[in-house]
């Protein structure tokens, strides 16, 4: 499987509320944004303004395609029509890389449009690895998979989430998108150590980091509608000490603030990582 080169930029998710900001300004030069990440499915359409905006953004800076519907953990197999449409967008945009989540979203009859939890068992690992192999072969490229946030584990789990992810990466050659907030949320929800999680991952396979906010409660919920919290910043700092060059982005999907507020968070990430200058020169 093809390898994915490192990219140490700092970026934001491209959301409709900021289309004009990005298109009006040279966002890279003015705000120090090195790349944008898009939700792939929002642009897997035949035409219209969303695709035009994406192509205009691609002309300005690198784009990462982040999917939510591959359902790599589905025992019902991959949706080949989905992969064909994803491939069309990949060919059109030439992204830095593509990613999705370690989860399942559908059965043959229904699609939940949610990232549902995997049982961390060896038979499920076989299914995930088969699906990853097929997806990477179909798309002709390695894919990054993101560690999910979850709200329950299964009584018959046979390994930890990080052990499952390490096995998956080693067996398939896939890469990892490390969501620090998801580790923070799941560590709270399931009572494991976030530091143990980080220590158990093959850090050489990580190419990207997500930072996001969540909603507090007995069970923390990964809502992406708040600023990154102090605990997540601390965990990010620990991860930075264990990682080589990776791309880092702030992921905000709801209660979206003006772009400069997100740039402030991005600059904080840049400072923690010890990289004071954006990659794109003014």
């Amino acid at each position: 499987m093809h390898s994915i080169d490192t990219f140490s930029g700092f970026g934001l998710g491209l959301r409709r509320a900021h289309y004009q900001d990005f298109l009006n300004d040279d966002a890279g030069a003015v705000m120090g944004i090195d790349f944008v990440e898009v939700i792939s499915e929002n642009y897997m359409v035949e035409g219209g303004n969303p695709l035009l905006v994406l192509e205009q953004m691609r002309a300005k800076m690198p784009v990462i395609m982040h999917g939510v519907s591959m359902s790599i953990g589905s025992a019902h197999g991959l949706d080949m029509e989905y992969l064909a449409q994803l491939e069309m967008l990949v060919n059109r945009i030439d992204p830095l890389w593509i990613s999705d989540h370690l989860c399942w979203t559908r059965t043959s009859a229904h699609n939940s449009h949610d990232l549902l939890p995997m049982p961390y068992r060896y038979d499920a690992l076989d299914t995930v690895c088969d699906n990853v192999d097929r997806a990477q072969e179909r798309l002709g490229r390695a894919i990054l998979f993101e560690n999910p946030s979850s709200y329950m584990t299964f009584p018959d789990d046979e390994m930890s989430e990080w052990e499952f992810i390490a096995h998956m990466a080693r067996r398939t050659g896939c890469y990892l998108l490390l969501d620090i907030n998801n580790i923070f949320v799941s560590a709270h929800n399931h009572g494991f150590s976030a530091e143990d999680y980080l220590a158990g991952l093959p850090m050489d396979r990580v190419r990207q980091i997500h930072l996001a906010g969540h909603t507090d409660g007995d069970i923390k919920i990964d809502t992406h509608d708040q600023p990154v919290c102090g605990g997540v910043w601390q965990l990010y700092a620990k991860a930075c000490n264990m990682l080589g060059d990776v791309a880092t982005m702030i992921e905000r999907d709801d209660n979206i603030p003006p772009l400069p507020r997100l740039v402030e968070e991005l600059n904080r990430a840049r400072a923690i990582a010890g990289k004071s200058q954006p990659m794109v020169a003014a």
């Binding site: 589905s74 025992a75 019902h76 399942w104 559908r106 059965t107 009859a109 229904h110 939940s112 949610d114 549902l116 049982p119 038979d123 499920a124 076989d126 299914t127």
Partner: peptide
């Protein structure tokens, strides 16, 4: 993986 398939069908039914 018939066991995982059944597990996911059951989980989906519980979500729906």
């Amino acid at each position: 993986n018939a066991a995982l398939k059944q597990r996911q069908q059951d989980f989906m039914a519980q979500v729906l």
